[in-house]
Design a protein around this nucleic acid. Sequence first.
DNA 1: GTTATTGCAAATTATTTGCACTTGG
DNA 2: CCAAGTGCAAATAATTTGCAATAAC
Lengths: 140, 140
Amino acid sequence: MSCENRFTSELHRRGLRLTPQRERILSVLHGMRSPVTAEEIHRRVAESGPGVELSTVYRTLDLLQTFGLISVIDRGDRHYRYKHVGTERPHFHLACRICGKVIGIDLAEAADFASRIESSKGFRPDIAQVTFPGTCRGCR
Amino acid sequence: MSCENRFTSELHRRGLRLTPQRERILSVLHGMRSPVTAEEIHRRVAESGPGVELSTVYRTLDLLQTFGLISVIDRGDRHYRYKHVGTERPHFHLACRICGKVIGIDLAEAADFASRIESSKGFRPDIAQVTFPGTCRGCR
DNA sequence: GTTATTGCAAATTATTTGCACTTGG
DNA sequence: CCAAGTGCAAATAATTTGCAATAAC
C-alpha cells in the first residue's frame, strides 16, 4: 500500500480527517531524500501554494510519528529532523558530524549487538530509534 | 588525579579561574548517581547556600564538557542531562523510557558492532556519545 | 450538522547573550 | 591591577497550546 493510502486509512480508522494541509506535508516528506526539520517542511510547503502554519506542521508530524510513517532523527543539536519511512525495512541511522550526511542501516546489522545487551544487562535497546554520531569516510 | 584537581589544572592551563560557583557545580555533579539537567543542578546548588545563576550553570557545563569531565545524555525529550565522568572508563548509556533509569555500559561491549559498521559502511560511529532508549528488565 | 482541524497569537521551555559590576590570581 | 567571571535581565529558538472560525465527512 502506498504511504498516502496508509495515511488515509490510519486517519479514518481513528475518525480523523484527511486535509489538504496534511496531504501537502506528507508529500514534502515523501519527496525529501534527507531528513528535514519542521521549519524546512514549513518552507517547502509554502513553495507550492498558500502557506501552512508551522503549528499545523508540528501537529501533523505528531500524527505521522504515531502512525509510524516517519522516524525522528536527533543529531544532538536540538533540531529534530523527520524522515519518511513508509514501507522501508526497519533501520537506524548514522549521521556524520562534519558534513551532516545521514545513512540508513538495516536493523539486522545491529541484531547481535542488541541481543548481547539484552542478555547481559536485561535491557532491550530500541536501536531503530537511534542515530549514531560519527564521521563518514569522506570526512576523514 | 581527582576530578577536582583535574578541573583546576585544566582551568589554569587555559588561563581560566577557579571560582566558588564552579567548585559547587562540579561538586553537585560529583555527588549525583544519575544524570541531571541543568535545572536540577541549579536547584541542588541553591540548597547548599546562596544560589548560583542558571546561566552560570550552563557556562560551567560547557567548560566541563570541553575538559571531558562530564558526558551529555540525550533521552530525546529535549532535556539534556549531564553526568560526571571523571576517571571512569569510556562508556555509553542505556536509558529506560519507562522509569528513566540510566545504565552505563563499558564501550568494549560495543566494539564488535562499531568495527562492523566501520568496515562495511566506512562510517566510524562515536558510540560513547550515544544513549540507547529502550526498556529495562524491571519495566517489562 | 457535527466534530475535527486550522490559523493565529500568545505561552512555554530550554538555553544563550550583552553588559556593568565583581573578583581571582 | 585587570582580564575572567558572575548576576541579572533581555533575547533566542523550537515547540506547544487556547480558542474562535472553518471545513471534512
